[in-house]
Design a protein around this nucleic acid. Structure first.
Length: 491
RNA sequence: GGUCGGUUUGCCGAGUGGCUAGGCGCUGGUCUGCAAAACCAGUUACAGCGGUUCGAAUCCGCUACCGACCUCCA
C-alpha cells in the first residue's frame, strides 16, 4: 500500500511529500486559542483540521508529539474605557483575577473540544508558564543582534534582519511595501520602524499581567510564545507548524524571523494553514461580532441558529469541506450535513449485520486504496467522505442480497469503516435518541400495543397512537415486521 | 493602495487537461392499511471574453465580482 502523505506547505505554496525529520517521530505545533472568550466555530476549524492530521499520522505509525498552546498573556489588557461604559463598569465590579478569566475560558475551550471529539494534544503549554524561557529567547535574539531596547520595551529589528535574511518569505510581503502601508498606531514611536514587533513590552500601570525582567516589569510579545514553546518542546527544528490562515501574517512571519535570528534558519519544515469559516460570506470572528460560539451551536440558542446542532454534525460539516477552502456557515448546510452523517452511520450499522457468503463482488483493495489516496492528498476529507458514501450503495446492495461478499472482505470492510470514520475522521455515533431506559420501555410498550392494533386492522387506534407519539417528538418507523423509533427534537 | 486566494449545478462542496466527486434538496419508484422512515433510480454545472490545445471547469491573458491579510484574531 502506497502511503506517501502529501501536505500543502504554505511556505512553498505547493503540495510536498511529507518526510519526517526523525522518523518515526513527528513534531507538530499548532497555535491554540487566546482564552478570553468562549470558543466559537472558527476555533473548531484548526482544532479539527489538525486533529485529523494528528490522528492520521498516528494511524500511519508515526509517534507524534503534538503541542498546542494556550495564549494567556499579551492580550489581556484592561480596555481603555472611560469608566462610563456599562460593560466596563460591570467588569470592574466583578473584578476578576486575570488567571480566573484564563482558567474559565480554558475550561470552556476544553469542554467544547471534547464534545467535538478532538483529541487532547500531547502538550498544551501556557504562555504565562514560560516567561523565563521567553526572556531567555529574547537574550538569544539580542546575542544575534536583532533586538533593541527602548524605554524598557524590547523590539525586533526587522530591517536589520531583512538585510541578512529575508523578511516576508511566508506571506510574500516585501519590506518596502510594508513600510509604506503600515498604519501609524499609538505607541509606535519607540520603534525604529513601524513594522518592528515587540518582544517584551513594559507594562502600563493598568496592565494586569506583569513579570519582572532585566528590561522592565512587563510582559512578552505575542509572537514570542510560539517560537519559544515550539522549540522548547519540539527542538530547534521540527516538522509541522499549523494554525489559522489569519495568523500567517504577521504572527507566523514573525515567528520565522525570531527563530531564524536565533538558529540561523527557520525551525519549521511544513507550514500548514486552515482557511476561515465565513458567515454570509464574511469571516466569522470575535472582533467582527458575528462569532457564534460552539456552545450556541450545541444548544441552538442563538438568533442565527434555527436549531441545535450536535457536535458531530458540526465536525462532519467541517470535514465535508477541504481545510484550505473557506467554509460558509448556514443552517441549510449544517442540516444537510447532519442528515448525511445520519445516513453514514446507518450504513455502518447495516454493514455490521451483513452476512458473508462464499464469493465476493467487492473490490476491497481498490476501495481501501482510494480512501488512503484521498487522505494522502493533503488530507482531502471531502473526497474520503465521498468514497465512504459510494461504499454505502454497495453495503445496501449486500443487505438486499443483490451482491455478495466473502468473510475476509467483509471483515476488512467493517474494519475500514471503523478505522476511517471513527479513528481518523473522529466521528462517533452519539447515542441514538432513545432517551432514558424508562422512556424507552414505555414507548416500546405503547408501540407494541399499536402493532397489535395494526395487525387487527384497527387503524383508528394505531393512528391515534401514532399521532400522539409524533406530537411528542417521537418518530415512528414502521418496518416489514415490527417497528423502530427515535426521539426527535431532543433539547 | 499592496500581498494572497476565490467565482462550480436549487443549496453546501470536491475536482488542475480527456475517464464528467459526494452530501442535501427535488422528481419518480420499491415497501406500506395510509403516511413517515428506509432503500433504489433520475436530476448537472463550471463568472464573462479572448488565447493555447485534437481536446479546458482544469493552462495563459484580460475584465467583472467576492473574500482574507496588511491592526488583536483560528
Amino acid at each position: 500500500m502506497e502511503n506517501q502523505l502529501f501536505i500543502y506547505n504554505s511556505l512553498s505554496r505547493k503540495k510536498e511529500a511529507f518526510k519526517a525529520l526523525n522518523s518515526p517521530h513527528v513534531g507538530m505545533y499548532v497555535c491554540g486559542p487566546t482564552v478570553y472568550g468562549n470558543a466559537h466555530l472558527g476555533h473548531a476549524r484548526p482544532a479539527i483540521t489538525f486533529d485529523i492530521l494528528f490522528r492520521y499520522l498516528q494511524h500511519l505509525d508515526y509517534k507524534v508529539r503534538y503541542v498546542r498552546n494556550i495564549t494567556d498573556v499579551g492580550h489581556l489588557e484592561n480596555d481603555m474605557d472611560d469608566g462610563e461604559d456599562k460593560i466596563a463598569k460591570k467588569a470592574r465590579l466583578e473584578r476578576l483575577e486575570p488567571m480566573e478569566v484564563v482558567q474559565y475560558y480554558t475550561n470552556s475551550y476544553h469542554r467544547s473540544m471534547r464534545q467535538l471529539n478532538v483529541l487532547d494534544p500531547s502538550i498544551e503549554p501556557q504562555a504565562s508558564g514560560h516567561i523565563i524561557e521567553q526572556q531567555q529567547f529574547i537574550d538569544r535574539i539580542f546575542e544575534s543582534g536583532f533586538a533593541y531596547e527602548k524605554n524598557g520595551s524590547v523590539y525586533f529589528d526587522v530591517k536589520k534582519y531583512n538585510e541578512k535574511y529575508k523578511y516576508g518569505i511566508l506571506s510574500g510581503r516585501v519590506l518596502e511595501d510594508l513600510q509604506s502601508n503600515t498604519r501609524n498606531l499609538e505607541g509606535q514611536d519607540e520603534k525604529k520602524n513601524p513594522f518592528d514587533f515587540a518582544l517584551w513590552k513594559k507594562a502600563s500601570p493598568d496592565h494586569l499581567m506583569r513579570w519582572p525582567s532585566k528590561w522592565s516589569v512587563g510582559f512578552p510579545g505575542w509572537h514570542l510564545e510560539c517560537s519559544t514553546m515550539g522549540t522548547k518542546y519540539l527542538g530547534d527544528e521540527f516538522d509541522i507548524h499549523g494554525g489559522g490562515l489569519d495568523l500567517l501574517f504577521p504572527h507566523h512571519e514573525c515567528e520565522i524571523a525570531q527563530s531564524t535570528a536565533v538558529h540561523g534558519k527557520s525551525s519549521v519544515r511544513y507550514w500548514m494553514h486552515n482557511n476561515m469559516i465565513t458567515l454570509n460570506g464574511q469571516k466569522m470572528g470575535k472582533s467582527l461580532g458575528n462569532a457564534v460560539s460552539l456552545d450556541d451551536f450545541f444548544s441552538g440558542k442563538h438568533p442565527l441558529l434555527e436549531k441545535a446542532y450536535s457536535p458531530m454534525s458540526v465536525r462532519f460539516f467541517m470535514l465535508q469541506a477541504h481545510y484550505r477552502s473557506p467554509l460558509d456557515f448556514s443552517n441549510e448546510a449544517l442540516i444537510s450535513a447532519e442528515k448525511g452523517l445520519e445516513r453514514l452511520f446507518r450504513g455502518i450499522e447495516t454493514l455490521e449485520k451483513i452476512q458473508p457468503s462464499s464469493k465476493s463482488d467487492i473490490d476491497f483493495k481498490q476501495f481501501e486504496s482510494k480512501c488512503y489516496h484521498a487522505l494522502n492528498d493533503d488530507l482531502n476529507t471531502p473526497i474520503l467522505i465521498s468514497h465512504l458514501f459510494d461504499g454505502l450503495k454497495q453495503i445496501n446492495d449486500l443487505k438486499e442480497g443483490k451482491i455478495s461478499i466473502h468473510s475476509d472482505d467483509l471483515n476488512n470492510l467493517q474494519s475500514l469503516y471503523k478505522t476511517f470514520v471513527e479513528n481518523i475522521l473522529g466521528l462517533i455515533h452519539e447515542n441514538s435518541g432513545k432517551g432514558s431506559e424508562l422512556t424507552a420501555v414505555l414507548i416500546e410498550t405503547i408501540l407494541t400495543i399499536r402493532q397489535e392494533a395494526k395487525l387487527k386492522k384497527n387503524f383508528e387506534t394505531s393512528d391515534q397512537i401514532r399521532n400522539a407519539l409524533t406530537s411528542l417528538g417521537i418518530e415512528i418507523k414502521d418496518k416489514k415486521d415490527g417497528f423502530d423509533w427515535e426521539l426527535k427534537s431532543t433539547t
